[in-house]
């Protein structure tokens, strides 16, 4: 029993540390500028105001939320499919150059994106994709090394003989992937979906560099414009961030249902 209490105490303390900074975001989003100056960040302003949220929602911000949602949906769809394909091949198919190619994928994560951004931007110019949706999506929609690495590891951890019977039944690789392996990968797919959605939603530097118009503006960039060279609209930035977080929490709760023990795998002896 005391063990149980200790467990909950540890969880509660950890949760508090986790959430506390974000609590400051929420409190600040609900303060007037005057309350911001007169109260410490960790105390609420009284009475709380929804003016900041209303101001953000009343301007162009909802449009940028839609842009971001569209970008996120497309990137997630593309990445889930192509990442899974590639990871499957790297983990469970044998072909020439497999290891070299895989580590080449991983190696592309080892050079800072701030510097590769310049050549990438020039490539996009050559492809005539600057300031277009295609340019915004192209580098990431075909799957990312990070996601492929993640899924490869999960595919590898599945028992090695799974495909065999299906092969004997004459199933092709695609059938095996869809019918045999993927049902066992729900936790991994759930995780991949979560990280893809959230990292797309929060992506900042590439959208900022490749596009500059309002038609493709995403929320992170819109929030950043509230921080001027000289002053910061804290309460508006925090309100924007609060609006941005809400759908992500919903997405997380939806997908984390899948991070549970796969029935099939447990049934396996």
């Amino acid at each position: 029993m005391t063990k149980r209490i200790l467990l909950y105490a540890a969880l509660a303390a950890g949760a508090l540390i986790s959430v506390f900074p974000y609590l400051l975001v929420v409190l600040t989003a609900l303060k007037t500028q005057a309350q911001l100056s007169s109260t410490p960040p960790w105390l609420p302003g009284w009475p709380p105001t929804t003016d900041n949220l209303a101001k953000m929602l009343g301007g162009d911000f909802p449009r940028y939320v839609l842009n971001t949602a569209l970008m996120t949906a497309l990137l997630t769809a593309g990445q889930l499919v192509f990442t899974t394909f590639a990871a499957y091949a790297f983990a469970r198919l044998r072909f020439k150059g497999r290891e070299i190619l895989f580590w080449l994928y991983v190696a592309t994560m080892m050079v800072p994106s701030a510097v590769t951004m310049i050549p990438l931007f020039l490539i996009m110019r050559e492809l005539d994709l600057v300031n277009t949706w295609y340019g915004l999506l192209a580098p990431y929609i075909l799957g990312t090394p990070y996601g492929i690495f993640l899924m490869r590891q999960f595919f590898k951890s599945l028992p090695s003989g799974l495909e065999e019977a299906a092969r004997i039944d004459g199933a092709g690789s695609m059938t095996i992937l869809l019918r045999v392996l993927l049902p066992l990968c729900r936790p991994a797919l759930g995780t991949l979906a979560i990280i893809t959605v959230i990292s797309s939603w929060n992506s900042f530097l590439w959208p900022l560099i490749i596009t500059s118009g309002d038609d493709t503006r995403v929320i992170t960039v819109a929030i950043a414009t509230l921080k001027d060279g000289i002053g910061v609209d804290y309460h508006l930035m925090m309100a924007g961030s609060l609006i941005a977080l809400a759908p992500m929490v919903a997405v997380f709760i939806f997908f984390q249902k899948h991070i549970v023990r796969s029935v099939v795998l447990t049934g396996l002896k």
Partner: peptide, 18 residues
Amino acid sequence: LPYDQYWTKLTADVVAGT
């Protein structure tokens, strides 16, 4: 553009001629 990234973006644009 956000002020903090205005110059990074402008630099990239000048390099690319855009």
